[in-house]
């Protein structure tokens, strides 16, 4: 059902991802305006985009004895891996490439970001930045396994690692309905990857924005864009994995894909503002002792269903 699109998709997919990120940033700006008691308007929503020219015009800084190579490598990895992750995300009936190992590809790209942001924290040779980088490692150690289990649960339900097959396996009943734990864990894991809101521990206010603390100019722009790109990519991947992909009545498949993606994105942006930052000293234990066993039990459900099919 899902098939690979032509060369044009190589440009359209990143463009759609970017458009989604701009929408997410605008939505977040409106929520921020409401909290701060500012008028909510189109101008208020668009103002964060002024960051782009501001950061492009900024003077570069030279830190004492930085690890320049790893720093730059880490910064670039975050947005690049976000863009690469859309390779396997279907939009309606089309995808850039319907790899036979699509789920593993998405997983691998997301692991790149765990490494990238740690490097970005290590690079500048600054205490708060380093602490932020390690906080992200702790976050990764806690959320990566539950997230992998969530991906595997969906793959088990379809007995395939191909995203197209996973969509096809949801004809009739969405995975989100009978794999609710995997769905929630997936969303939490993806948000943790974006270090936004309650998962903003590595860029916390308490450590003067941690990993982002010493970056300026294009580096800062790429890191900050990368987190929003990942949020959109995560929301878009939730649709084929758990919400039946482009399936739906009346509208064409691409419309259902975008609608569902925007809905997941809106929920994430809203929820992420509602919670304080979750810290490692509380969630590492929680993730290992509660989330992982829960995720395993959830993975058992589709395995048994598939066995009796």
């Amino acid at each position: 059902m899902v098939e690979a699109a032509g060369w044009w998709s190589l440009l359209v997919a990143p463009a759609l991802l970017l458009a989604g990120a701009v929408l997410a940033v605008a939505g977040d700006a409106l929520l921020a305006a409401r909290d701060a008691g500012r008028p909510r308007s189109a101008v208020a929503a668009a103002r964060p985009l002024l960051e782009v020219p501001r950061l492009l015009a900024a003077q570069p800084r030279r830190m004492p004895a930085p690890d320049r190579l790893l720093w730059r490598l880490g910064v670039v990895t975050v947005p690049v891996s976000a863009v690469l992750s859309v390779l396997v995300i279907p939009f309606g009936h089309r995808t850039v490439a319907d790899l036979s190992v699509g789920v593993v590809w998405f997983n691998a790209m997301e692991v790149f970001t765990w490494a990238g942001l740690w490097l970005a924290g290590w690079g500048p040779n600054a205490v708060f930045s380093l602490v932020g980088g390690y906080r992200f490692v702790a976050q990764g150690l806690a959320y990566e396994l539950p997230l992998m289990f969530a991906l595997i649960t969906a793959a088990t339900g379809a007995e395939s690692l191909r995203v197209g097959d996973i969509v096809a396996a949801q004809q009739g009943l969405w995975f989100a309905v009978w794999m609710p734990v995997a769905f929630v864990v997936y969303l939490a894991g993806v948000s943790a990857l974006c270090f936004l809101g309650p998962f903003g521990y590595p860029v916390g206010r308490d450590i003067a924005s941690g990993v982002l603390g010493e970056t300026t100019g294009a580096d800062r722009l790429l890191l900050r864009a990368g987190r929003w790109l990942w949020l959109v990519s995560g929301a878009a991947m939730a649709v084929p994995l758990f919400l039946g992909g482009g399936a739906g009545p009346w509208l064409p498949a691409w419309a259902w894909s975008s609608l569902k993606t925007l809905l997941v994105l809106a929920v994430l942006v809203w929820v992420l503002r509602r919670l304080p930052v979750l810290r490692a000293d509380r969630y590492v234990e929680f993730a290992w002792v509660v989330l992982i066993p829960l995720a395993i039990v959830q993975a058992l459900v589709p395995a048994l269903v598939v066995l009796n099919r």
């Binding site: 008691g37 500012r38 208020a44 501001r54 003067a208 603390g213």
Partner: peptide, 16 residues
């Protein structure tokens, strides 16, 4: 700053 939507910088690197 709150009413005029001027973001707070936490470090000099982010500040204008």
């Amino acid at each position: 700053l709150r009413l005029h939507d001027l973001p707070l910088a936490l470090t000099p690197a982010d500040a204008d």
